[in-house]
């Protein structure tokens, strides 16, 4: 069974087409990362999935229900983290716990306080007076204490330092380990997702590519070679992306080393000391999506 299904999704905003014919699904019990450059519609997609935006056409199912009309019982099973760690700033820690405790029947107060007390703040500390990292802990505590079946996290890493990001990852790992839990996450810190996700959706210009993390890391390669002067190269079937720093060129491709070498020779490029090197997910992201 799929936790999320998107069929023929089309969306326009101010006459600009964000998606034309988007189709993907996220099976239950998996961790899926949505990756894309800024402005590619990641938050828009989260808003559509959570019913905060009506798409131009197409259908989205979340836990089997139409996302435009999620019944309360289904929303009860979804933990949602909004971009910017949205929280009620007029509440303090204790009021936040009291408020959500009355809203969610499966609320687990000890989970909330376990996370929040790591900050060492008094329970009457107002959310408005917290740093971004502290606020993120409160929000994380709120969504974890709901004990949801599906977590949707919209750029959880925004404004967080390495410590808070690591804490987030630890909590998400523990949550996933409970079994049967689905996580759909967007983040601009790609290397964090490498430690978390098992499938990824790359979104670019309204097109998507869905792949398993291991499949992607095994099939997409980074090559480096030296080249004197400015390289005149464009992307094609073999070259998916490249970047040049001084004489060192990094080239990204799904093809093996021999094919890349042949292709470059065909293009008249002398790839001195071409070799395949280790690639991080961030390298792969840049290689596939480009920098801008």
């Amino acid at each position: 069974m799929n936790a999320i299904e998107v069929h023929n999704l089309r969306h326009q905003y101010n006459r600009r087409t964000i998606y034309e014919d988007l189709n993907f699904s996220i099976p239950e019990g998996t961790i899926c990362g949505l990756l894309g450059k800024n402005g590619q519609g990641k938050t828009t997609l989260v808003n559509i999935l959570m019913g905060f935006l009506k798409p131009t056409s197409g259908k989205c199912l979340v836990l089997g229900e139409d996302s435009h009309d999620l019944p309360p019982a289904t929303r009860n099973r979804i933990g949602l983290l909004h971009e910017g760690h949205l929280a009620y700033e007029f509440m303090n820690i204790a009021q936040t716990e009291k408020f959500y405790r009355g809203c969610y029947p499966n609320w687990e107060a000890e989970i909330f306080y376990d996370l929040v007390e790591k900050m060492g703040l008094p329970h009457d500390h107002k959310v408005a007076n917290m740093s971004c990292g502290q606020r993120s802990q409160v929000v994380l505590g709120v969504i974890m204490a709901q004990n949801p079946d599906l977590l949707i996290l919209d750029d959880y890493s925004m404004g967080l330092d390495a410590g808070y990001r690591r804490l987030f990852l630890d909590v998400l790992h523990d949550f996933a380990a409970l079994g049967g839990k689905t996580i759909f996450v967007t983040s601009h810190i790609i290397q964090d997702l490498e430690q978390l996700v098992d499938t990824m959706i790359f979104i670019d210009q309204g097109e998507i590519m869905q792949t398993g993390l291991d499949d992607f890391m095994n099939s997409f390669h980074k090559y480096v070679f030296h080249n004197g002067g400015e390289l005149d190269l464009s992307t094609d079937d073999v070259v998916k992306g490249f970047e040049q720093r001084g004489e060192l060129v990094s080239l990204y491709s799904f093809a093996d080393e021999e094919k890349v070498k042949q292709h470059l020779t065909t293009l008249g490029i002398h790839a001195k000391e071409l070799q395949k090197v280790e690639m991080t997910l961030e390298d792969g992201f840049i290689g596939l999506m480009g920098k801008y």
Binding site: M50, G51, F52, P72, A73, R75, N76, I78, L80, H82, G84, L86, A87, Y88, C103, Y104
Partner: peptide, 14 residues
């Protein structure tokens, strides 16, 4: 502010 009403709209209530 920050469209926080979305927090309430996500609660398990109509």
């Amino acid at each position: 502010l920050g469209r926080r009403l979305r927090l309430s709209l996500h609660l398990p209530a109509s």
